[in-house]
Amino acid sequence: MTGLTLLMVDTDQTLQQIKQQQLPILIQTTDWQSKYRILMQLGKGVPAFTTDLQRDEFLIAGCDSKAWLLHEYHQQSGRHYWAFDSEARIIKGLVLLALCQLNGLTNTELVQINFSQLFALPGVQQNLSPSRQNGLHAVLKKLSQQAGLPG
């Protein structure tokens, strides 16, 4: 397997894990300290991008911290896969939470997803700075473009 394939497979495995384990806990956690602690640790399970993958073509413009998003569409299975990395742990955590709800979905499945709710983690998003919000918006826009959705 190439490094890239390995990254996509590893990321997919971790995302499935996040979806099953951390996401339900996060939704139920009420105190902000625990919530952020979980969020901050999410990125640690996902392989970081090697420097050759931290390319400008994957860079998301409009982020406070540098962030890279990779997308692959499997022709055979008709499924979408993503990998993500960011210098900032909160952004990485929030985007991984969104990705765990999207990864491996088909076009018909993706149409059912409410993209505007992907980052709606109670108690977190409303406390992000304007530049952070812009960054997340930029990620969302790119995600929906890659998923072939309008806007």
Binding site: M40, D64, A88, I91, N127, S129, S131
Partner: peptide, 21 residues
């Protein structure tokens, strides 16, 4: 070892207004 924007976000959560970047 931490990104400045993570630190600022956690301070913001505690209603400490700073700038990062």
């Amino acid at each position: 070892g931490e990104h400045h924007s993570d630190v600022a976000a956690l301070l913001n959560q505690q209603q400490i207004a700073v700038r990062a970047g």
